[in-house]
């Protein structure tokens, strides 16, 4: 799948204060509108730093990224409205219900009460919260929290969804349902999805394209099927280990 680039990354770098190396090192690549892009890398490779820059959480040290022709470094506020973020950590108030958490997030985007309530109900039903949407988040299982966390990033119908390891802690059923749902959303709305994961099998079935990142640089970029083949590897995981090594990272 190759179409119009909605994200153009140009020489994007990030060096944290007090650090001697670049967490993201002159990244340059493009992500196409409507694709599901997987960013795969070991711990500390720069995946989360890259997503944090795209979502406006941290500023790049140098370089630029254009998202739907808006500059990342200057149009941060505008970009927050077209990007949905699903953080790796559970970003929910534990004592509020799943429904109240979602209503709060939706209100922060300025959605009208009726539209918001309809959207929240739709998502709660879709993700199996018909009966317990009004229960406190602290009573939910890890997987349930992840699902509410995911819905929180999608309420304002963003053009781009950033997912930082969205299915960690989910059981097989919840994981399958979530990925099916994301596929469904992607097909119906052409929402661009960028996601990070350590799950190569999931990335293989879910992503249109993947980028393998390590030490702040994209090592390989391509389709999940084509990339291993072009490198003479049987699958994505083999290629991943070949490129990033077997040494355990912190």
């Amino acid at each position: 799948m190759e179409g119009k680039a909605c994200i153009k990354v140009r020489e994007l770098s990030k060096q944290y204060k007090g650090s001697s190396y670049l967490a993201v090192n002159k990244l340059s690549f493009e992500i196409y509108e409507g694709e599901i892009f997987g960013l795969l890398g070991p711990n500390g490779a720069g995946k989360s730093t890259f997503l944090s820059m795209l979502s406006g959480l941290i500023k790049p040290t140098s370089g630029e990224a254009e998202i739907f022709d808006h500059k990342l470094t200057t149009d941060t506020e505008l970009l927050k409205r077209i990007i949905g973020v699903v953080p790796q950590d559970i970003a929910l108030y534990p004592t509020l219900s799943g429904r109240d958490n979602l209503l709060f997030i939706g209100r922060m985007y300025g959605l009208s009460e009726k539209e918001l309530k309809d959207t929240v109900d739709k998502y709660l039903n879709r993700f199996g919260f018909e009966k317990n949407g009004s229960n406190a988040v602290k009573t939910y299982s890890g997987g349930m929290k992840r699902r509410i966390n995911l819905i929180g990033g999608m309420l304002h119908n963003p053009k781009i969804l950033l997912l930082d390891e969205p299915t960690v802690g989910m059981d097989v059923q919840a994981r399958t349902s979530t990925m099916e749902f994301l596929n469904e959303v992607n097909e119906q709305t052409k929402m661009t999805i960028i996601y990070t994961s350590h799950d190569m099998e999931q990335a293989n079935t879910f992503c249109d394209r993947v980028g393998i990142i390590d030490r702040g640089q994209i090592l390989k970029l391509g389709t999940p099927d084509g990339l291993p083949a072009s490198e003479g590897c049987k699958d994505l995981e083999t290629l991943f280990l070949k490129l990033t090594g077997r040494k355990i990272r912190d």
Partner: peptide, 18 residues
């Protein structure tokens, strides 16, 4: 200190306005 801070800062408007 929780993930909420990340969520807050990705929402429109400054954190201080929140």
């Amino acid at each position: 200190s929780e993930g909420l801070f990340i969520r807050m800062r990705t929402l429109p408007g400054s954190y201080l306005s929140l």
